Simulated assay, not measured.
Amino acid sequence: MEKKVQQYYKLKQKHKEMEKELAELRQEIVTYCNEQEKNDVEIGSYKVKLVTQNRKEYDDLKLYETLSDPEVWRMLSKSDSAKIASLTKLNVISEDKISHTYTLKTITLLQVDKK
């Protein structure tokens, strides 16, 4: 069992190192694309694409104050963007009613495909 724990530890360390390297490479690629002012670019035999998305980040306190119905809040228990989106889609919650409870965060996704 000690060998398995040791192997797990080693793999977790490698995983952390790989995540760090991926983050650095991602930042360099995104920076390059931004400098080129392009969201789609071909580099060698790879196609790089930047996709921008807006994500809602909810303020739990504002949301709780707005959704005073304990049954609705019980369904959420804490702000979960996917659950809130589902409840607004089902018209359990009005988008207008909660529009002040979140901020939009723009994120950039990086997609790299081989041609």
Rank of each mutant, 00 (worst) to 15 (best):
Q13L: 14
V72W: 01
I98L: 03
T52K: 10
Q7W: 09
A82E: 15
K16S: 10
K14E: 15
K14T: 00
A23V: 00
Y58W: 07
Y8L: 11
V72C: 02
L63G: 01
Q6D: 13
E37G: 06
S45A: 12
I107C: 03
V51T: 14
K56M: 09
E35P: 00
I107E: 10
K16W: 02
R26T: 04
I93V: 07
S81V: 03
T66N: 00
V48E: 03
E21C: 07
K4W: 15
K10V: 06
T108G: 09
Q53R: 06
I29S: 14
V48F: 01
M1N: 08
L104R: 10
T31R: 13
V41S: 00
T103G: 08
Q7S: 07
T108I: 13
S86N: 14
S99N: 11
D113P: 05
I98S: 04
I84S: 10
L67H: 12
T103C: 08
M18A: 06
K20Q: 14
P70Q: 03
L22D: 07
N39R: 06
A82N: 14
E71W: 04
Q6A: 13
K115F: 05
E71Q: 11
C33D: 00
R26L: 04
A85H: 10
L25A: 09
S77N: 14
T108A: 12
L50F: 07
K16C: 08
K114F: 09
Y102L: 07
E37Q: 11
K3R: 08
I107F: 02
G44V: 00
T108N: 09
L87Y: 05
G44M: 00
K20V: 12
L25M: 13
T52Q: 08
S45F: 13
E95V: 08
Y46E: 02
Y64P: 05
K10L: 11
E95Q: 15
K78V: 10
L104V: 01
Q6Y: 07
E28I: 15
N54W: 09
K56I: 02
S79K: 12
V5T: 12
W73A: 00
